[in-house]
Design a protein around this nucleic acid. Structure first.
Lengths: 339, 339
DNA sequence: CATAAAAATGTCGACGTTGTCATTCGCTTG
DNA sequence: CAAGCGAATGACAACGTCGACATTTTTATG
C-alpha cells in the first residue's frame, strides 16, 4: 500500500509537507499543495489510521456497546443517528454487542481500549437503568436510552417517556374520554414506569378517580423472555360492563393484540373503542388499520445527540454528569375518535 | 498508557518476550510466562491494536456496510450474527451505513481502507441485487442478504426465499386449501419475486389452475417510500364470492393488515380464513392472535455464516464467487386450520 | 567430556505518520 | 542594502509492536 513516503517523493517535497496537506494545515503554498494532491490522486494514497493513532494519540473512533439479546427493532435508529453524526464529523464506529452478558461486556471494554477508542456510547434496547463498567476506566462515555445508577458520573440522553404518555393521556381526555384502560409494558423497564406514572398523574390532575381507570399488566419478566398477557388483558377489559372508551397501550407492539382483541369481540376501532400506542414503530403503527395514534420514541435523535455530546465530553475532558431528555412527539393518526 | 516496554522492565525480560507471551508463541518457559503475566496484570497493560496493525499488517477488523434508510427491524439479526461470530474469533467490527446513498458508500470504502480492515461484509435491509463498489478494490468481500450483479466475482449468502415459500404453499395444500390468495411484497425485491415464483410453481405442480389463485400486489415503490395496498387488497379478496380459504402474505408485517381486514369483515382466523406470513419477525408473528404460521428468515445465520466465510476468504486469499442459500424454516403456529 | 541440536531469550530495525524544532526563503521596513 | 519577522519547508525522532535474525542457554547423544 502507498505511504506518505511515496507521495512525498512523487511530489518532490518532504513527508511532513504531505502530512500538512492531507491534514489541511496552514503554511503550504498553493503550488505545493496542488503538486501534493496530484501525487495523492495518481498514487491512490489513503492515510493509515493506525499510524495516526500511534503518533498522535487520536483514533477518531467511537465505540458503541449494545445489549441486543434478540431481534430488536426499536433502537436500530439510535445506531443510525450515531452513524449519521459520525459520518459528517469524520469519526469511525466500532461496534460490539454484549448480548446481555456481563462477562462479554468486560471483554468489549478491553477490546475498545486496545483500539484506543476516543469514547463509548452505551446503548440499550429498552429504556432502563444500567450499571456499566465504565467506572473502572476513564474512557469518556455517554449513556443512550439508559440511565446509570446514581453513583456513576455519566451523562445520559434518554427519551421523555413521561411527557409522551402525559401528552397522549391529555389527548384522550381532551377528546372526551373518561373511562380509559391502560395496559402496562414490562414493569422492569424504566420506560414502563414513567409512562404509567404519567398516565396516573395526568388523569388525577384532570380530576378523574382511580375507579374510572382500568390498569392491567401486559407483560413481565426478563427482557427477551417476557410473559405476555396483552391479548387476554385487552379481551377482559373490553368485556367489562363499563368497558373503557379508550385504551392506552404500553407500546405499539402490544397495540396489535389490543386491536385484534377488539375486532374479535366485534368492536370497531375507533368508533367503539379508541386505541393509542407508544413508540411509533412504523412497521406496526402504520400497518394497523386504522393507523395508530402514538407518541414517537426519538431514537434517531437520541443517537445523534448522544454522539454529539460524547464528542463534546472528549474534547473538554470534563465529565458533566447530567441527563438530557428528548421529547416523544405525539403522532396523531386515525385510531382515536372524539366522544 | 502502559506499553510493552514497561511490562518488559517490570518482568525483567525483553520486549520481544512480552510479545511472545501475549501472542501465545512457543518457546517461553513457565516461569518467564508467569512473571510476564503478573507484570501485565499489575500494570494493566492492554495491547495497542494500531501498533500491531502497522507492524504486522493485520487489523483483525471486519467492516460492515449497511444500507439502512429507515427503521429496519428485519436485518438487525444479521449484524448480531456477525458480531457473535466476531466476538468468539477475536475480530472487531467497524460499522458504517450508506443510508442508501452511493456517494457515502465510496467514502465508506475509503474509510475502511484507512483502517486497513481485513474484509467487508456488505449487508442489505432487504434481499435484493446490488452493485457494490468492491470491484474497484481488492478487499475481500462477502455479500449478505444480497446478490452481486453477475459481472462481479463476489461470494454471497442469501436466504432461500423460494424454499420457504414453497414449504408454506405445500403446508396449505396439505391441509386441504385449494383457493389460496397471495398478497405480494414489493416487486423490486428479489425476495418478493422468489416467494411468488415458488408459490406459483408449487400450486402448479400440485395441479391447481391459475384460476384457483388470487394474486394481488400488496406494496410497491422505492424502499422506504412504498405505496401500501395490503389492507385494501385483503378486504377486496375476502369479499370475493369465492373467497380464498387461505391467504399467503408477502411478509409478516403485511399479515397485520390482512388479519385486521379479515376481523373487520367478521371473519374468524383460522376458522374462516387461514393466514400465513413470511419472515417470522417475532414482534409481529407472536403479537398476532392467533399466532402466525410463517417461514423464518434466517438472519442470524446469514450473519454468522457470512462472517465465517469472509474469514475463510481472507485467509485463503482466493475469491471463489458462489452463492450460499440458507433455508427458511417453516414455523407452525395457530393461524392455519385444516379443511 | 565434547559436540550438536533444540529451546529460550534478546537485539534491532521496520511499519506509517506526525510532533517538535531547525532551517531556509520571501517580504517588509528603516 | 541590511536586518528582522513571518511564512514555508524540511529533518528527525517518537509512538508501540513484532518480524527477522542473532545470541545464549539447555538438553541430548556419542
Amino acid at each position: 500500500m502507498v505511504s506518505i513516503v511515496s507521495v512525498a517523493k512523487a511530489a518532490g517535497v518532504s513527508n511532513k509537507t504531505v502530512s500538512r496537506v492531507i491534514n489541511g494545515e496552514p503554511h503550504v503554498t498553493e503550488d505545493t499543495r496542488e503538486r501534493v494532491e496530484k501525487a495523492i490522486r495518481d498514487l491512490g494514497y489513503i492515510p493509515n489510521m493506525a499510524a495516526r493513532q500511534i503518533r498522535s494519540s487520536r483514533s477518531n473512533t467511537f465505540g458503541i456497546i449494545t445489549d441486543y439479546v434478540s431481534t430488536t427493532p426499536y433502537s436500530v435508529d439510535i445506531v443510525r443517528g450515531i452513524q449519521d453524526w459520525a459520518n459528517t464529523h469524520g469519526k469511525s464506529i466500532l461496534m460490539a454487542n454484549t448480548g446481555g452478558l456481563p462477562e462479554r461486556e468486560a471483554e468489549i471494554w478491553k477490546m475498545f481500549q486496545s483500539h484506543r477508542i476516543d469514547g463509548v456510547l452505551y446503548v440499550t434496547m429498552y429504556h432502563r437503568v444500567v450499571d456499566p463498567e465504565a467506572g473502572d476506566v476513564s474512557i469518556p462515555t455517554v449513556m443512550i436510552n439508559c440511565r446509570p445508577q446514581t453513583s456513576e458520573l455519566l451523562p445520559s440522553v434518554e427519551p421523555d417517556d413521561f411527557q409522551g404518555a402525559r401528552d397522549l393521556t391529555r389527548y384522550l381526555l381532551e377528546r372526551g374520554h373518561r373511562r380509559i384502560g391502560y395496559i402496562r409494558l414490562n414493569p422492569i423497564l424504566l420506560g414502563a414506569e414513567l409512562r404509567l406514572d404519567a398516565f396516573r398523574r395526568t388523569v388525577k390532575e384532570f380530576g378523574l378517580a382511580e375507579s374510572d381507570l382500568s390498569i392491567r399488566l401486559g407483560m413481565e419478566g426478563p427482557v427477551g423472555a417476557e410473559e405476555n398477557y396483552v391479548f387476554a388483558a385487552a379481551t377482559e377489559m373490553l368485556q367489562q360492563k363499563d368497558r373503557p372508551t379508550a385504551i392506552m397501550s404500553g407500546n405499539d407492539e402490544m397495540a396489535i393484540q389490543i386491536y385484534i382483541a377488539a375486532l374479535t369481540l366485534g368492536l370497531r376501532i375507533p368508533q367503539d373503542v379508541s386505541i393509542v400506542g407508544f413508540d411509533d414503530f412504523r412497521t406496526v403503527s402504520l400497518a394497523l388499520k386504522p393507523e395508530l395514534t402514538t407518541a414517537a420514541l426519538p431514537y434517531y435523535d437520541l443517537g445523534f445527540q448522544g454522539a454529539e455530546w460524547l464528542n463534546g465530553v472528549i474534547s473538554e475532558e470534563k465529565v458533566r454528569a447530567s441527563r438530557r431528555v428528548v421529547s416523544c412527539k405525539l403522532v396523531e393518526r386515525t385510531s382515536v375518535r372524539a366522544l
